[in-house]
């Protein structure tokens, strides 16, 4: 049987985007150390329900660290203390008996709090809609092996494509910037041969949409530290370069009015 922990929790509760929030203090006793962080919250919620208290709302789904739905600030760190790990994959054995754990939602102007620990991240979808795709209508594709892609290119593209869109980069950034998210999507598509025709249009549109919602980068590197997929800061540099190029290239494209 696994070891049991007794913890003191401070969990943020807030009824809506404009409601006043406050901390709920809970003594969470007998939490198995093999439980995941979210399972610990499940246990707390079941006990709250038994006491007729509405359970704490938090976003979660796959619990395998890939869907990107979950994510909270744990003691001032996005996704908690384990590097490269989403909240759902963080396990209680990383904590000690008697610890106090402060749990807060992501906070950024463009991530309004919906309820308790759940925030609205639709701004990320807006960024992708601005150009985070390759226009390849179904049926138009040539044979998959027609365009060889050097392994290194496919690998770096995949490194960037691993982003799960959880928003930890924004939550961890002192400026609430979404550069890591945006640059990862750009790098994924901009490095591939298939991504070239729309490269400059995509870069300009996505960066400017990002700036409509989020802050700017001051190169702290906190986003990378918080990222459950350890997306590289280098992608931000590539994006910066591509953006300024895009401003020039898009002007010089004859078809651009």
């Amino acid at each position: 049987m696994s070891k049991m922990l007794n913890l003191k929790l401070k969990i943020w509760r807030q009824n809506g985007p404009h409601a006043q929030g406050s901390f709920l203090e809970v003594d969470a006793h007998d939490i198995p150390e093999d439980a995941s962080f979210l399972e610990m919250l499940d246990v707390v919620n079941e006990r709250l329900i038994a006491d007729d208290v509405e359970p704490v709302t938090f976003g979660h789904d796959c619990r395998e660290g890939i869907c990107g739905t979950c994510g909270v600030m744990i003691n001032g760190q996005a996704h908690g203390p384990e590097k490269g790990t989403a909240t759902c994959q963080l396990h209680m054995r990383k904590f000690n008996d008697g610890d106090e754990i402060v749990i807060e939602p992501w906070q950024a102007t463009s991530f309004p709090i919906l309820k308790d620990l759940m925030v609205d991240r639709r701004a990320f979808d807006r960024i992708v809609e601005a150009g985070g795709y390759i226009s390849a209508p179904t049926g138009t594709a040539p044979d998959a092996n027609e365009i060889p892609i050097p392994k290194e290119v496919a690998d770096t593209s995949m490194d960037a494509a691993a982003c799960i869109g959880c928003g930890a980069c924004v939550a961890a950034c002192p400026n609430s910037a979404a550069q890591l998210f945006t640059s990862a999507k750009l790098h994924h598509l901009n490095t591939l041969p298939q991504g070239q025709p729309e490269r400059w249009k995509r870069t300009e549109a996505m960066v400017e949409t990002m700036e409509d919602f989020f802050g700017s980068c001051t190169n702290h590197g906190e986003c990378h530290e918080a990222c459950p997929k350890e997306i590289s800061l280098d992608f931000i540099a590539f994006m910066n370069k591509d953006y300024v190029k895009s401003k020039i290239k898009n002007r010089s494209l004859a078809s651009k009015r």
Binding site: Y133, A141, P142, D143, A144, I149, P150, S157
Partner: peptide
């Protein structure tokens, strides 16, 4: 074919 055209970064051999 469709997925490659969309930019799905499938694993590749060194020959590309």
């Amino acid at each position: 074919d469709q997925c490659v055209a969309q930019g799905v970064p499938f694993a590749r051999e060194y020959g590309g």
